[in-house]
Computed example of a mutant assay.
Amino acid sequence: MSDEQANQIRKGRHLETVSLIYNLLEVGVSLAAGFATGSSALISWGIDSIVESNSAAFMIWRLHGEEKGIGQRNVLKRKKIALSVLSVAFAIAVLFILYESISKVVSGETSSISWWGIGILMVSLVVNPILAWGKYRFGMETDSPSLKYDAIDTMICEYQTIVVLLGIGLVHWQGWWWADPVAALLIVPYVAWEAFHAGRDAWNVHPEDAAVGNDASA
Results as ranks from 00 to 15, higher is better:
V94H: 04
A211L: 15
F196A: 05
S144M: 02
V191W: 05
Y99E: 12
E4P: 00
G65E: 13
G69R: 07
F196R: 15
R137G: 00
L76G: 07
D180V: 00
S101L: 07
A218S: 14
V123M: 09
P145H: 00
L83Q: 09
I70A: 08
V18M: 08
E67N: 01
G65K: 06
K104Q: 14
Q8S: 10
L166N: 06
A198K: 08
I168R: 06
A91T: 01
G38L: 10
N128R: 02
I43V: 15
S2E: 14
G139R: 02
G69L: 10
S44A: 15
M122F: 10
D153K: 06
V105W: 05
W203T: 04
S55G: 12
V126F: 15
A57I: 03
V88D: 11
V29Q: 09
S124R: 12
N74D: 13
Y159G: 07
I113W: 07
S87A: 14
M122R: 02
D143M: 03
S114V: 06
A41I: 06
E208L: 01
Y99I: 14
R137W: 05
R78E: 15
I152E: 03
A132C: 04
I113L: 12
L131E: 10
V212E: 15
V212T: 13
G167P: 02
V126Q: 04
V127H: 06
L86G: 07
V127K: 02
A216I: 11
F58R: 15
E16S: 12
I156R: 05
W115H: 08
N23H: 11
I60V: 12
V94R: 01
M59E: 05
A210I: 06
R62Q: 14
F96E: 12
W203F: 11
S39D: 13
G213Y: 02
E194L: 10
E100L: 13
Q5R: 09
S217M: 13
I187A: 09
N204G: 08
S53Q: 07
G119N: 05
G213N: 00
L63G: 02
A202I: 05
V188K: 11
I92S: 13
D150C: 02
L31R: 08
V212Q: 12
L121I: 01
W178A: 14
I130C: 09
L25E: 00
S30D: 12
S101W: 03
Y136G: 04
R13G: 09
V29A: 11
F90G: 02
M1V: 10
A184L: 13
V205Y: 06
S112W: 04
Q5I: 08
G38H: 09
S146N: 13
V106W: 11
A32G: 05
V188A: 08
S146H: 04
G134S: 11
L165N: 06
D153C: 01
S40D: 06
N214M: 06
L165Y: 07
D3F: 08
P145A: 03
E100P: 05
V29R: 04
S87F: 00
V29M: 07
G108H: 10
E66R: 13
R10V: 03
V205T: 15
W61S: 14
